[in-house]
Amino acid sequence: MDSGGPIAENQYGSSAAEQAIYWFALLLDGTESEHDRANFAHWLAADPAHHRAFMEIEHLWTGTSSLNLGNLNLDGQGKSGRRAFLGAGLAAVLVGAAGWYGDVIPHHPFADFRTVKGVRRKITLLDGVQAELASQSSLSVITDDKGATGIALHKGEVFFQHDGRQRDFFVRAANGFVRPVAAARFDVTCYDGQSEIITQTGSVDVETALNTRNVTRGEGVSCDNGVLGTPYDVDLAMRLAWRKGRLVFVGDPLEKVANVLQRWHPGRIIVLGDALKQRPVTLVVNLNRTSDVLPLVGKVLSINVDQIGGYLTILRDA
Rank of each mutant, 00 (worst) to 15 (best):
E56I: 04
E56A: 08
E56K: 14
H59Q: 06
H59D: 01
H59A: 05
L60V: 08
L60G: 01
W61T: 14
W61R: 14
S65D: 02
L67T: 02
L67R: 02
N68V: 09
N68W: 14
N68K: 09
N71D: 11
N71M: 10
N71K: 08
L72P: 01
L72F: 15
N73H: 04
N73K: 08
N73Y: 04
L74H: 03
D75E: 05
D75C: 06
G76A: 12
G76L: 12
G76D: 01
Q77H: 05
Q77N: 08
Q77W: 15
G78V: 15
K79N: 06
K79A: 10
G81W: 02
G81K: 11
R82N: 06
R82H: 09
A84R: 12
A84K: 12
A84Q: 03
F85N: 04
L86E: 00
L86K: 04
L86W: 07
L86G: 01
G87Y: 06
G87V: 11
A88N: 07
A88R: 14
L90M: 09
L90A: 06
L90I: 09
A91V: 08
A91L: 11
A92E: 03
A92W: 12
L94D: 00
L94S: 09
L94H: 10
V95H: 05
V95P: 00
G96R: 07
G96C: 01
A98P: 00
G99W: 00
G99T: 00
G99H: 01
W100M: 07
W100L: 13
Y101L: 11
Y101Q: 09
G102H: 03
G102P: 00
G102T: 04
D103C: 05
D103L: 09
V104Q: 13
V104H: 09
I105L: 14
I105Q: 10
H107M: 05
H107T: 04
H107K: 04
H108C: 07
H108E: 11
P109A: 04
P109T: 08
P109C: 05
P109H: 15
P109N: 10
F110P: 01
F110C: 10
F110G: 10
F110I: 13
D112M: 15
D112K: 03
D112H: 06
D112T: 07
F113W: 15
F113M: 13
F113S: 10
F113H: 12
R114I: 05
R114M: 04
R114N: 07
T115H: 04
T115N: 02
V116Q: 05
V116R: 15
